[in-house]
Amino acid sequence: MSTAETPSRQEVEELLYEEAALLDEWRLDEWLELLTEDAVYEVPPTDVPEGDSRNTLFIIADDAVRIRSRVKQLLGKSAWAENPHSRTRRMITNVRVLGVEAEEILATANFTVHRMRYESVDTYVGRYNYKLVRRGDKLRIRERRAILDNEALRPHGKISFIL
């Protein structure tokens, strides 16, 4: 396994902005194409933000099978919490490339995600930790962890879309 070259911040930003656009537009099948075949998507609990999903109860800890199932459900009819779909708008800032570990590129970014539904606006605030890998001339997402600064999902109640 060779060590990855550190990408420019601009290249990482382009990936994260593209991801945000696909998620906000509910183009979830296309979003899956940004992920590796073994991708992981996690949201730790608000009281153990640095926890490990193997021994801590997370809010979301999807392996590749569950990510794909989640997308299929969200694009189907019976994910009632997202049928009709929420409107979401993601602000991705403070993107930093932290370094490289073997073939993985570590990056982080701050997020503010507004979710609009039934005339309520809920705001999710936090940061993403990414592990990216290079596939051909593209960067792909192997791990995305959305770490909430919100102290509780109140009044949000749920994370039913992809945060």
């Binding site: 730790p44 609990p45 608000t46 009281d47 153990v48 926890g51 021994n55 801590t56 109860l57 997370f58 809010i59 309520s120 102290e151 509780a152 999902l153 109140r154 009044p155 949000h156 109640g157 749920k158």
Partner: peptide
């Protein structure tokens, strides 16, 4: 009780 509390709400 396992570490990690799910703190949420419902309207």
């Amino acid at each position: 009780v396992v570490a990690g509390q799910q703190s949420y709400s419902a309207r």
